[in-house]
Design a protein around this nucleic acid. Structure first.
Lengths: 347, 347
DNA sequence: TTGTAGGCGTTATCAA
DNA sequence: TTGATAACGCCTACAA
C-alpha cells in the first residue's frame, strides 16, 4: 500500500522499513541513530527489516537535519608515501563506526584552500582532519565552524582544536644522538624554507641537541626550497664545500634520497665520506642502493589517534587535546661506518 | 522580516537571496543551476545578491532533489606517486565547474570495496571515477547506478562505462625496442601475479614485440606477488640464475628500484651487467643512485581526460568512449651501455 | 516506549 | 520569462 505506484525502481526509505517492521518511522530513525529509548525487540525487528529490504540511509536527507557521518580529510600533495599510512590509520579508527572518510587534496602550499574547506562544510561533513597546514588563524576560524583535528602542526597551545603530532623535537634529537654515538661530530641539517611549525620544531630539536652535546660550533642548518633542482644544488654545495660536513640530517627521506643521488654522482661514499639520516622511514629506505637510516613516525598511529579524537569532538568533547607520538630510529647502512668493511662477516 | 527570529547565526538560503534580489526562489534556483530561461538582468541581480550575502548552496539539500556536484574518485592504495598526477589532472579538469572531487581509498585488492561505492552513492555523488579496478562485472553493475569512468582497466570493448588508459601495449613495445636498439637481446620482464587487464596488456605488448623482433627464444615473463620480499627474491633469482638476462623490463618503477637495490647488493653493474627499464617515470627515476629509464604515462592527462568524460556522461552522453594515451620513453643511464664509459666526453 | 506532524533547503513542474 | 508550490528522506519536538 506504500511506496508509490510509479514505474521507476523507487528508493527504499525509512518509511518502507517502518511499514515492513510494523513500527513508526520515528522508531526506525531512532534505531538508525542508535538513539536512546528503543526496546531491544524493536531494535532487532527494525534491523532485520532493514537488512531484508536492503535499506540504505540517504545521506543528503540526513544532512538536512542531522549528521552525514562523513569526515573530511584534507591532505597536502600526496606524493609522500607517508600520507598513505595516515589515511590507513584514520580509516582504521573509523572501522565499526558509521563514519566514512572522504579525502580532498589541498593544492596551496601556504594555507588550506578556502574552496576546499568550504566545499567540505557545504557538504555537511561532520568534522575535519587537516594534515600539514600551518596557518593558525585560518585553522582557528575553521574550528569555529566544524570539529577539527590537525596533524603536522605544532600550535599545541591552542584551546580551539585538537592536534596530533609526531614528536619532531625528539625526532631530530634521535638522529643527532645516533650520529654522535657513531663518532660523527660535524653534523649539518638540510631543511626547507617554510614557516611550517613542524619544520621549526625539528630544527629546534637539532639545534638544542647539538648544543647539549657541546657541538654548537658544528651546528648548521641549510635551507632549500622545495624544487628538486634547488635541493640538489644545496646538497652539492654542502658535499663539495670546503667545510664539508661528516653527516647530514635531512628533513625528509625524499630529500635524503636526493642527497644520496648527488653523492653518488660525485663519487662520494656513504657513509664513509658522509653519513645520511632521513625522516619518515618510507619504503625506499630499505632498497639496497639507499639503505637509508631514517626516523620512523608512525603515520598509522597518527591517523588512528586523530580519528578517535575527531569522533570524540563530534560527540561533544569540549576540552582540547594535544597528542604526541614518539618516533623511533631505524638504522641502516647510510649512517653506520664499517658495517660493510668487515669482509663478508655479515653473511 | 525573513530568516527567522532565532538567536543562532542562521544559514543564508536561497530564500534570503530571493528576498534581497526581489525575485522568486525559483528564479534564484534557476540562476544557480544555470538553467534555461533567465534574463541577463535577472541573472546579474541574483549573482550580486548571492555575492553580497555570501550565499553558499547547501549540498545536502541539493542532493535531495538534484545533483550534489560532487564526484567520487576511488583509488587503490595511494603509495605510487603516480596517482598524485591522476588526481591533479582530474582536479584540473574540474576547474571552472561547480564540481568537486572527493577521494576514497579502496583497500581491497581484487575488486572495489562495496562499502566504499555504496557510501559514495549514498552521498549522492553525481559520478564516479574508479582507478585500477578490474572486476568487470562489478564495474558494469556500478555503471548501472551512476555515471562511471575508469582508468587502468582495459575492458575497452564494453558499452556501459567509459575507459581512459595508458596504451600499455605500446608502453611495453617502447621498452623492448629501446633495449633492442641498444644491443640487448636477452630481455626478460618482471611482472606481478594478478589478473589485472592492465598487466596483461603490458605483458602482451612485451611478448608480441619480442616475437616481432625475432627474439621469442629470449622472451620470459617472471611473475612475483606484491610483497617486497617476494619481488626481491624474484629479482635475486633472475640476476643470479644460470640464464641471467641481459635486460629487465619491470612492471613498475617501484619494482625496478628494488631490482636496482638487489643488483647493488649483488655487486652487479647497471647497465653493464644488466639493464633495467621501469614504468611510470616517477620522481625517483631521476635520482643519481637510480638513473632509471622509464616509460612515462601522463597521469595528468589521464586524469584530465577522465574528468572531461565523466562530466559529459553526467550531462547525458550515452555513447561509450574509450580513450588511450600514448606513453613515451624517458631514457636514463640504467639502460644505456657505455654512456659513462666514454671518459668525461659527456661533460 | 511509540507515533504524528511539521520542517530542513533545494529542485522541478506547472501555471501565469 | 517568471513565480508558486509540492515533493525529496530524514530528524525531532511534541503528544499519546
Amino acid at each position: 500500500m506504500k511506496s508509490s505506484g510509479g514505474g521507476r525502481p523507487n528508493r527504499i526509505t525509512i518509511r518502507d522499513v517502518a511499514a515492513d517492521a510494523d513500527v513508526s518511522v520515528a522508531a526506525v530513525s531512532k534505531v538508525l541513530r542508535e538513539a536512546y529509548g528503543v526496546s531491544a525487540s524493536m531494535r532487532s525487528k527494525v534491523h532485520s527489516s532493514m537488512a531484508k529490504l536492503g535499506y540504505r540511509p540517504h545521506t543528503a536527507a540526513r544532512g538536512m537535519r542531522g549528521q552525514t557521518f562523513t569526515l573530511g580529510l584534507i591532505l597536502p600533495d600526496i606524493r609522500n608515501p607517508f600520507f598513505a599510512d595516515i589515511i590507513a590509520g584514520f580509516q582504521d579508527g573509523l572501522e565499526g563506526t558509521q563514519y566514512q572518510a572522504l579525502i580532498g587534496i589541498n593544492r596551496s602550499t601556504s594555507m588550506v584552500e578556502e574552496g576546499l574547506v568550504d566545499s567540505m562544510i557545504d557538504r555537511q561533513m561532520d568534522g575535519l582532519l587537516i594534515v600539514g597546514a600551518n596557518d593558525h588563524e585560518q585553522l582557528i576560524a575553521i574550528a569555529q565552524r566544524k570539529p577539527l583535528v590537525t596533524i603536522g602542526n605544532h600550535h599545541a597551545s591552542n584551546e580551539v582544536y585538537d592536534t596530533v603530532n609526531n614528536d619532531d623535537d625528539e625526532a631530530a634529537r634521535l638522529a643527532v644522538r645516533h650520529l654522535v654515538d657513531g663518532g660523527y661530530r660535524n653534523i649539518a641539517m638540510l631543511s626547507l624554507i617554510t614557516d611550517s611549525t613542524i619544520i621549526k620544531e625539528r630544527e629546534r630539536g637539532y639545534t638544542d641537541e647539538m648544543n647539549r652535546l657541546g657541538l654548537s660550533r658544528f651546528a648548521r642548518i641549510v635551507r632549500s626550497d622545495q624544487l628538486q633542482s634547488s635541493v640538489q644544488n644545496a646538497a652539492r654545495a654542502i658535499l663539495t664545500g670546503p667545510d664539508r660536513t661528516e653527516a647530514l640530517f635531512c628533513w625528509t627521506d625524499f630529500i635524503a634520497l636526493q642527497v644520496i643521488g648527488v653523492a653518488t654522482e660525485l663519487g662520494l661514499g656513504i657513509p664513509d665520506d658522509v653519513a645520511i639520516v632521513g625522516h619518515d622511514n618510507t619504503m625506499y629506505c630499505d632498497f639496497g642502493q639507499n639503505s637509508l637510516t631514517s626516523v620512523d613516525q608512525s603515520g598509522r598511529l597518527l591517523g588512528l589517534e586523530a580519528a578517535r579524537r575527531l569522533i570524540e569532538r563530534i560527540k561533544g568533547r569540549q576540552a582540547t587535546e594535544h597528542y604526541l607520538v614518539s618516533p623511533r630510529l631505524v638504522v641502516r647502512r647510510s649512517s653506520v661506518r664499517n658495517i660493510l668493511t668487515e669482509p663478508a662477516a655479515a653473511l
